[in-house]
Design a binder for these strands. Structure first.
Lengths: 193, 193
DNA sequence: CAGCGGATATATCAAGGCGATAGGTTCGGG
DNA sequence: CCCGAACCTATCGCCTTGATATATCCGCTG
């Protein structure tokens, strides 16, 4: 239940764990972290921050930086309760973790996620996509594909998901490989950087 | 203005132009046509149908098929006004047509779209993605990429968009290639599997 | 035949996201 | 000195989503 629509909250807490931030900067970093298509709007961010204040996960701090006469900014800081909530949620590897909206965010915080949880999320995600793929392939054959463009759109969609599955498979292999030894050549090199 | 949130309406009109349908069947076909990820909910569909009734684009018809089923069904039928609205919108190749939400739907109805409009939409879409790509690539280099997983996520996202751009380029080439010929083509070949 | 489950079908509600917009500050360049 | 761009907080209306309610139809099995 707590993992229902808490994606945004969780992402905010994850960022605030690195350093306190004000709303504007928070939005920029969230878009960087999560948003490839649509941008996160303030109409989502500020209500979320208020919910989190009410829940006691964050606190407001008036920022008065020395040196330059800084303008008014409200800096948000994570509380111990927020840290605990984030820790609990990041540990959870239930079905919610591999839904479309949640997966990217969960992946982005994989560095703070246990290896076994990482693996379960990746596998859950892959199976999710695999099921979707199977459904799409059967409905495509059975359906009325009179239209050339509709068919092409479906073909491309299926191919995209197939690519996604391959990506996840590589990641899973890499995760498994790094548990024991060095993985052989893959796109995600664990021994590098 | 009319092209703001009219994606759903337009898709409904497109389907109703083939044949009258009731809500349940409409939803199934819309999900087939547009939805690869999230499903369209009735909470979107029915309000949209009511808006369209108010606008006079569709009418309700009580379906009382004798002998088959006495079950209550409300069948929706497109009106001449609806046909006109659909025609106007499908002709429009403005920026709204290549946004994320609209593009797939517009593409799905390409068979009823003029060749020049098709081309403009495909090119607009490609440029949109290209811009997004450029922004992503620069912010990735400049940004703080301390995190292995965040970097991998960005890399994969960029690669996905690059793939999308290549797909669009192929489609554009195909459109241009077939443009020289007769205006009324029933079947064209793009696939070289 | 009864009754059970699953698909069909219409509809509404609370919660929340999004785009638009508004208001205000800071800063660099012409 | 003014302008415009970036910075920063905030709210509003419209819409979508997911859940839920209600009811009917159909095929299967006991």
């Amino acid at each position: 239940m707590a993992s229902k629509g808490a994606t945004l909250e969780l992402a905010v807490l994850g960022l605030l764990q690195e350093t306190p931030l004000h709303g504007y900067e928070l939005r920029k970093r969230l878009n960087l972290l999560l948003g490839w298509g649509r941008l996160l709007s303030y109409g989502s961010l500020y209500p979320a921050l208020k919910r989190m204040l009410r829940a006691g996960w964050i606190t407001e701090v008036a920022s008065v930086s020395p040196g330059v006469s800084r303008r008014q900014r409200i800096v948000y800081q994570i509380t111990p309760e927020g840290v605990k909530f984030f820790g609990d949620q990041i540990t959870d590897s239930g079905p919610a973790a591999w839904e479309d909206e949640n997966f990217n965010m969960r992946f982005a915080f994989f560095s703070r996620t246990n290896a076994d949880v990482r693996l379960r999320i990746l596998e859950g995600r892959r199976q999710r996509l695999q099921e979707r793929l199977d459904r799409a392939r059967t409905t495509q054959r059975g359906g009325r594909n009179g239209d050339r463009y509709v068919t092409e759109l479906q073909r491309h969609s299926i191919e995209s998901v197939e690519r996604e599955v391959r990506w996840l498979t590589d990641l899973i292999d890499a995760e498994r490989g790094s548990q024991v030894r060095e993985p052989h050549r893959h796109q995600l090199r664990t021994s590098q950087e």
